[in-house]
Design a protein around this nucleic acid. Structure first.
Length: 320
DNA sequence: AAGCCGATCAACCGCGATTTG
DNA sequence: ACAAATCGCGGTTGATCGGCT
């Protein structure tokens, strides 16, 4: 694929931006909007390459950028999201309105990463030029999602995939170890794109490595307790990212099962239901809304299993 | 005062992904 | 279907600053 270097032109300004350059760029974008970065500098009368202009705008000049120190809450969130997502700065930034990925990345590398180094008992490895990560550590978030949960021996990945099945636990005890297959026709999903989280974390399926909570394969019922069972729900093209873009703490709250599920039967002309906690994703299934709160595992298309309960408690807790 | 060093952060670079023609 | 153009991301660099000797 042919690809010209961005700044092949000789004589372009480089390095720090001057006040005048900033003003020119801001004025131009105010008038013409963002985009067309390659041609923007020429049209705006800037002696910069498009890439540099874009970066300057996104990381510094954008009006919605939040200035000032990272708050304690933001820091906590960064720590938790980094555990979850690894060095997916753009995703992490998506949860921190007004912050830029560059800012969060720098903050991590200089403050949080250093702190982690100083306290090696903590989970995430730093990623700094002063202390390079090993290949194994690099970009690989640490699996602490199951902290406080039944232990699952898993590898956490930040790889996009789509979920194909959801395992849920019913409110009322039903036939023990019952497995239901939902008709594909009732399993279409039309989720809107979620700009906040477009990727996800999956946990490697544990087919050959039974974990303590009893999940040993995708077809073997979970045995959290004697009343639990797995409903094998085919949700078609449900993108797992939509699930992950939702509030798991709300999705998974065993003490407050029905809170998030409102009267949301769609149109009243079919048996499909909207799960409001899934970031307005519309999920058409035969499953009654109350069952959504007990989603326990999501199996993805690449045979990985996401343990939603672990994620929920992880996102819910402020602990390390 | 001068030099060194570490911390910080804006900016650059390379590359994969996506869009466009 | 393909190539080119563009975008966006994550890793890295380098200028600057402040503290220390």
């Amino acid at each position: 694929m042919g690809r010209r270097p961005c700044c092949s032109k000789e004589g372009l300004n480089r390095g720090a931006w001057s006040v005048v350059e900033d003003q020119i760029l801001m004025d131009y974008i105010k008038l013409h909007g963002e985009g067309n970065w390659r041609s923007l500098p020429q049209k705006a009368g800037l002696n910069r390459c498009g890439k540099s202009s874009r970066l300057r705008w996104l990381n510094y000049l954008r009006p919605d950028i939040k200035r000032g120190n990272i708050s304690h809450d933001e820091e906590e969130l960064i720590l938790r999201l980094h555990k979850l997502l690894g060095n997916r700065w753009s995703l992490i930034t998506g949860r921190l309105p007004g912050r830029t990925d560059n800012e969060i990345k720098n903050y991590w590398n200089t403050k949080l990463g250093k702190r982690k180094r100083d306290h090696p008992s903590s989970s995430s490895a730093p990623n700094s030029k002063h202390s390079k990560q090993s290949e194994n550590e690099k970009n690989e978030p640490i699996d602490e999602l199951s902290a406080g949960q039944p232990k699952i021996t898993t590898l956490v990945r930040t790889k996009a995939s789509r979920c194909t099945k959801i395992f849920i636990v019913p409110t009322q005890p039903r036939d023990h170890h019952q497995v239901e297959e939902i008709d594909d026709a009732n399993a279409a999903v039309i989720p809107p794109p979620n700009p906040m989280v477009d990727s996800l974390v999956t946990q490697k399926a544990v087919e050959s490595e039974p974990c303590s909570n009893g999940l040993s394969s995708l077809t073997t019922p979970v045995e959290d307790n004697s009343l639990d069972f797995i409903m094998n729900l085919n949700v078609g093209d449900l993108c797992l990212s939509e699930l992950l873009g939702s509030e798991f703490s709300q999705l998974w709250n065993p003490h407050d099962d029905h809170e998030m599920i409102e009267e949301s039967k769609i149109n009243g002309d079919n048996d499909n239901w909207l799960c409001p906690s899934l970031d307005q994703s519309i999920i058409y299934t035969d499953v009654m809304p109350e069952d959504w709160t007990r989603i326990n595992y999501v199996e993805t298309r690449d045979d990985t299993v996401l343990h939603l309960g672990s994620l929920a408690s992880f996102l819910d807790s402020g602990d390390d």
